[in-house]
Design a protein around this nucleic acid. Structure first.
Length: 271
DNA sequence: AACATTTGACCCTC
DNA sequence: GAGGGTCAAATGTT
């Protein structure tokens, strides 16, 4: 009985997360569609908003994977045992080990969802039970970081359109900053050992974006989640960089801009 | 030129 | 042997 309650609770949690992910997808669509509108493009808001939504999507995806990995841990262990006796170390073209029959996680959506991760398509197949092609994707960082995450997407219904995405494996790649070409966190070798340098790409922020005054406000709003004082340096000659003289975990809380999206982004930007 | 997608072949599991 | 998952060469796109 108690077990049933836990299962339904987990299902409800999963449904809520999926609902959140779908809403974030819709928001992302609005942001992406707005790129071509000249006025919005010139503002500081859209790059931040788009990044924020992508990060939200990634969180939803990872949470769903974690939830479902717990569920399928046992079955995948069993299937691994079954495979122990099969041949190994083959490198011929097309050689592969068939994935476990139980997917890590699958979800249906009326739109082709983005999930915040970068995928590379590596194949597509017409399956016997469907009139539509199934597309196979692997993580874009599979080669660089040996990330094992894969997914396949299949249309399962014509009208209204419905797509089923099945994920296997979870992301082990450190792609957090790769998808944020305009912001970069790195060591600041010229300063003290534990300092960090937060860089803003000039292409995004040179024109009417973050002004000196705003940067100073931003720096004063940076606080430590460990309640420790954080020392910040803003170089006079370069308004696109902030030096963070601390090795502790930081939270941004920048609220002077009129943009809610900017707030969300800064609120999420934790390292 | 570099990167992404398409497509047919290959090979495993059932 | 059928069906499905993956590879890699060919092709397309930026």
């Amino acid at each position: 009985m108690e077990n049933n309650n836990e299962v339904s609770k987990a299902t409800m949690m999963e449904q809520e997360i999926m609902r959140g992910r779908d809403m974030a997808n819709q928001l992302l669509q609005v942001v992406v569609d707005s790129r071509n509108e000249e006025e919005i493009e010139r503002s500081t808001v859209m790059p931040f908003a788009e990044d924020a939504v992508r990060k939200v999507l990634r969180s939803f995806t990872n949470t769903l994977l974690l939830l479902n990995n717990e569920d399928t841990k046992e079955s995948s262990c069993n299937s691994n045992n079954n495979k122990k006796n099969s041949s190994s170390n083959k490198s011929q073209k097309g050689y592969h080990k068939r994935k476990s029959a139980a997917p890590s996680w699958q979800s249906d959506s009326s739109i082709l969802c983005e999930d915040g991760h970068a995928w590379r398509k590596y194949g597509q197949k017409k399956t016997i039970n469907s009139n539509y092609l199934r597309s196979y994707y692997k993580c874009s960082y599979k080669n660089e970081e040996d990330c094992k995450a894969i997914k396949h997407v299949q249309r399962i219904q014509e009208d209204p359109p419905l797509y089923r995405t099945t994920y296997s494996g979870h992301h082990t790649c450190k792609c957090s900053f790769v998808n944020y070409p305009h912001m970069k966190l790195e060591s600041a070798p010229s300063l003290q050992e534990s300092s960090k340098l937060l860089s803003f790409n000039n292409n995004y922020y040179n024109n009417n974006t973050l002004q000196s005054k705003e940067m100073k406000h931003l720096s004063s709003s940076i606080s430590s989640t460990k309640q420790e004082p954080v020392e910040v340096i803003i170089p006079n000659d370069d308004h696109n960089q902030i030096h963070l003289l601390s090795d502790c975990e930081l939270d941004f809380n920048y609220s002077s801009t009129e943009s809610v999206a900017f707030d969300i982004f800064m609120g999420m930007f934790k390292f």
